[in-house]
Nucleic acid binder design. Structure first.
Lengths: 273, 273
DNA sequence: TTAGAATTCTCATAAAAAGAGATTCTTGGC
DNA sequence: GCCAAGAATCTCTTTTTATGAGAATTCTAA
């Protein structure tokens, strides 16, 4: 569990680059990480040659171009983003809101695409922004459809915060709340993440079974009627279902053209009897 | 020179994820990289726990959330991007064009911000897109201001392509062409990257000395008069200079408030779960 | 539940990181 | 353009630690 391999130690270097401290000198890194000078330089060299770090002219290191390239790759090739984009645009055209596509990464909710038709809140919902695990419609739109094995430990780990959200004070109560979300087909949250902002989210499924993402609309609570809210919920559900469907179709296409793939040969060693 | 350390071997895994092949099964990776099964799984585990890879439910791996997060970090904290954004917007408001901010990474030109007021070419100039080193206004707007030590090997390595661009057929001729660009304060290229598209680029400097980026405007050649072109060139130069100045001021501010930096203490190693 | 596959474990072997200090390469100052 | 101060790399031995064959385990899907 505890990573003491050099792999972990190299990747750990990237963890010290944070919003507050994005430039590091070698001295600072030595002090922070406790690596000896030659070792640190070896690691830094590897990371720099791979493009993950760039040495600044003055003296120091910062994140490098590979990061930007990899994100471009992901952005351009992620079927979720490419099929979802138009649906986000349709949503922001219909309401004065922000529309997000948030991916479930097994331990993290990360915004992977966002559009907005209101001026201010855009920047706080940019791509790459991590979302809270225990609060908000997004979280529940994913969690409610998780298999029990995955769901239970998650709830137990975040029970305190969920209690505050009024989801219930025991595992069973929260499970019941999740059941209601599942029945409704979407999750709605009033000001759980940002005060005064209503979030509505519906899940996107991968192979029809496990949720991989959520389509979300956030809108200012004071300028929305219950009817509009219903309409939003309907639209969000429709859009999410459409993305799920598009993903499934894409999968089929990919499989059909997979004839190019070299067949995998089983090379079991069978001992002659 | 070719890295055979485990650091390089781990980072090499990320290199096989390309636009054409973004999902890899363990079998494919073993065949492609030649690692033994346990070793590969160890590496994959490290990369997955760091978030650089995600295992897909079906069977396979793809790039993970850390990539998106790191890019967000870079985007949000890169002073070049944050000070340059408004200038790009001003440029696209003034002309029907695409405006880019392209960063020089020592061996690579990478678009780090882009805005566009024309519908079609937007997607081809997205953030993360690598730009050619030997062609186009962007390249020259950087190269012309590089110190000779860095410039010469670059020219020699790309002489053939530069010959085709009409920059000269010998080192000295290309150096002379660079001198002209330096005198003009900006580089202009007619259809060197995309046929029919005129690019105009001016350099952004870091500490007043070495170029770190270029502001670029690309515009369709047929719908632009020589006067407009002059105007664009003037604006691009002005904007680039403004960004350089803003960066310098930022630097001063950072230095003045550097007393806030907490002294770095030894911290117990903690691993994220 | 039970095959079947995917992932992790065990452990002896051997490779390759680590570290101290010397050495070379860069930078900035004059 | 030269020199000094600092940054980055190299040398080389010790010891750590990664490696890989095969076995054991866990996961997944029927």
């Amino acid at each position: 569990m505890t990573g003491t391999g050099s792999a972990e130690r190299i990747l750990a270097i990237l963890d010290v680059f944070t919003e507050d401290h994005l430039e590091w000198t070698t001295e600072e890194l030595m002090a922070r990480l406790g690596y000896s000078r030659p070792t640190l330089y070896r690691y830094l060299k590897a990371l720099r040659e791979a493009g993950f770090l760039t040495s600044l002219p003055g003296a120091g290191f910062t994140l490098g171009p590979r990061v930007v390239e990899l994100d471009y790759l992901l952005r351009k090739s992620d079927p979720l983003v490419s099929t979802g984009q138009k649906h986000l645009e349709a949503l922001i055209d219909a309401y004065p809101c922000s529309a997000l596509l948030v991916r479930w990464y097994g331990a993290k909710l990360l915004c992977v695409a966002s559009e907005s038709s209101t001026p201010n809140p855009l920047s706080s919902y940019a791509r790459g922004r991590a979302m809270p695990l225990a609060r908000g419609a997004i979280s529940r739109a994913i969690m409610a459809w998780l298999p029990r094995r995955q769901l239970e430990p998650l709830i137990l780990a975040n029970l305190d915060e969920m209690k505050q959200m009024g989801l219930g004070s025991t595992l069973d109560e929260v499970l019941e709340a999740m059941r209601l979300v599942r029945r409704a087909g979407a999750a709605v949250a009033h000001g759980e993440v940002t005060p005064g902002v209503i979030g509505t989210a519906a899940p996107v499924f991968d192979a029809g079974q496990s949720p991989i993402a959520a389509v979300t609309v956030t809108i200012a609570g004071r300028e929305v009627t219950p009817e509009t809210l219903n309409s939003i919920e309907r639209d969000v559900k429709t859009r999410a279902a459409a993305i799920t469907k598009a993903l499934a179709e894409r999968r089929v296409e990919a499989r059909e053209s997979a004839g190019d793939f070299a067949p995998i040969e089983f090379e079991l060693e069978r001992k002659s009897s």
